[in-house]
């Protein structure tokens, strides 16, 4: 009985750890949807670039700096990459409706992914993180690394909350997301807002990729595209374009993956996220959390 309970709690704990990774990615994706209004299939590549840049900048690759510094640099670089990608690929066709943007994003995903493979080969890599023993509390064990991932994610969520609610940028982002022409009339430089949103969104993707790399080593350059569906699931579950919904959606998806692979079958881990996603799409396409931002 006690062991059944601790197995359940352990599964919940793992679910929350994975939810931390998903939520960072989902919030990033949903922020960019809020202002660009198309579903970006290239978003998964930001995750891959984050993890690989961190790998090459840190001990395992070039060996210049430690992982924390490498991670920060990688996140900033991915943010800049996001701005560049939007500038080169999406802005020139931004007035043609969402469908061309969506199809273009597939092409962009291919270009980014295979540039990464062409440059870094398809080999699986590992971030230079130490192996750690789990710390057990009441039969539930998590490594300090996993706790660190949760902490980073919680801090990121808080930062995004403060950004949206307390800063001028956040307010203009919300205004642009709510009604772009109205925001423009009110004197907001929406182009600048969109640019900054791309930076934040891509940077969040990069961070999610690094967290993924810390948890699920070794990873390949294709992992971002594979994980995209999980991120989509959380994003849509929370109602696309809604950051707080995305956080909630991430928790649910993380739990679903973890409980599903514990109690049903471990070989279908991501399929649980897919099934949840399809279920949400069918029953409540606007997501579980209605309302504004």
């Amino acid at each position: 009985m006690a062991s059944a309970l601790s197995q359940f709690l352990q599964a919940v704990a793992f679910g929350l750890v994975e939810a931390s990774v998903i939520s960072v990615g989902a919030v990033g994706l949903t922020l960019s949807y809020g202002v660009t209004r198309f579903i970006n299939f290239a978003y998964g590549e930001f995750l891959a670039y984050g993890a690989f840049l961190a790998f090459f900048l840190s001990g395992a690759g070039a060996g210049v700096v430690g992982l924390p510094v490498a991670a920060v640099v990688a996140v900033l670089l991915v943010g800049a990459l996001g701005v560049a990608v939007s500038r080169v690929f999406f802005r020139p066709i931004s007035d043609r409706g969402a469908l061309p943007l969506l199809i273009t994003s597939i092409g962009v995903a291919f270009i980014l992914r295979y540039l990464l493979i062409a440059g870094a080969s398809a080999e699986a890599r590992q971030l230079p993180v130490p192996l750690m023993r789990p710390v057990e509390v009441a039969g539930v064990g998590l490594t300090p690394l996993e706790l660190g991932v949760v902490a980073v994610s919680v801090v990121t969520m808080l930062a995004i909350h403060l950004l949206l609610q307390r800063t001028m940028l956040g307010k203009t982002m919300r205004a642009t997301s709510g009604n772009r022409s109205l925001a423009e009339v009110a004197g907001i430089d929406t182009d600048a807002v969109i640019r900054k949103t791309w930076f934040i969104s891509a940077a969040a993707g990069g961070l999610a990729g690094i967290l993924y790399g810390v948890l699920f080593a070794p990873f390949r350059p294709t992992f971002g595209f594979g994980y995209l569906i999980v991120v989509f699931a959380a994003t849509l579950l929370g109602g696309i374009g809604r950051p707080y919904g995305a956080m909630l959606g991430a928790v649910l998806i993380g739990l679903m993956i973890s409980l599903g692979s514990t109690y049903l079958s471990a070989s279908y881990d991501q399929a649980y996220a897919f099934i949840a996603l399809v279920g949400v799409l069918l029953l409540r396409p606007e997501g579980i959390r209605g309302g504004e931002f």
Binding site: F89, P92, I93, P100, I103, T104, I106, G107, V108, A109, F110, I111, L112, R113, Y114, L115, I117, A118, G119, S121, A122, E123
Partner: peptide
């Protein structure tokens, strides 16, 4: 150019990606 077995196949997919982008932009 990098010398590993995935290089040529990945260039192929980069071309396909560019195809998506260019066709949509210039000749939908």
């Amino acid at each position: 150019l990098p010398d590993h077995p995935s290089f040529v196949p990945s260039v192929r997919f980069i071309v396909i990606g560019c195809l998506f982008v260019l066709v949509i932009r210039y000749r939908p």
